[in-house]
Amino acid sequence: MALPCVENSRQRTLAELRSANLTLSGVGERQWYFQTCTEFGYYQTCEDVTCPFSQLLTLSAQLDVCSQVFGISPEHVREAVTFTNEYYGADHPKASRILFVNGDIDPWHALSVLKNQSRSELAILINGTSHCANMNPSRPSDPLPLVSARQRIDYHIGDWLSLARKAPSAL
């Protein structure tokens, strides 16, 4: 069964991102772009000559989306990302009771914390899974590393909630 082609153009993408109307397609895409432009600076680029995708996916092109859709200049993006990293501590956050959960085949995992930072800032890297796999409902076909990771997540959250009930001021 052949599937229809998906129309894909920069102008259409910009028009869809500019629209604040609710639709069932692209749910959260506008919000993700806005947060990327104002806090994260996470961009999918393909500037390396070995990249198998379009060489048009450059940092400059991604920053141009911020400007054209939200009126946010590249300089403001840079300042906002610097502020976010300084305020939250980048990959050394100034907090505790944090789980950094990633799948090893998720391209975003490279931007995360992959090694335990302390006894209460823990990294869980799930072999053979991708983006947010641990947040999906459990299925009998789930790979063992995912089942194990969910058990570790449940354990730590339960332990931390138990501590919070004993000493609410410790939060």
Rank of each mutant, 00 (worst) to 15 (best):
V113L: 02
I72K: 14
R139I: 01
A133M: 01
G89M: 00
K166Y: 03
R150K: 09
H131I: 07
H156W: 13
E16W: 14
A170R: 12
Q31C: 05
L63D: 01
E86Y: 08
R152L: 13
A95E: 01
L57V: 04
Q55V: 06
A61W: 05
G89H: 00
E47D: 13
P143Y: 13
L122H: 01
Q44L: 10
C5E: 15
F34D: 01
N8S: 12
L111N: 12
L56F: 08
N85E: 07
T38A: 14
L171Y: 14
K115F: 04
V65T: 15
P107Q: 08
S169G: 05
P168I: 03
V49M: 03
I98P: 12
A170N: 10
D159Y: 07
L14P: 14
P74N: 11
S96A: 11
A61D: 08
G41A: 05
T45I: 14
A80N: 10
S169H: 15
I157D: 02
E39T: 07
G28I: 12
G71D: 09
Q11F: 09
A80R: 10
H92P: 11
L24Y: 03
T82P: 02
Q31R: 14
N116P: 00
E79T: 14
L144R: 10
R97Y: 15
V65E: 14
P168D: 08
I157W: 01
R150A: 07
T82V: 11
R152G: 12
L59T: 06
P145F: 02
V65C: 03
I124P: 06
L17R: 03
I157E: 01
D142N: 04
D142M: 01
R152W: 13
N21H: 06
L3A: 10
L59D: 10
L144Q: 10
P168M: 02
N21W: 09
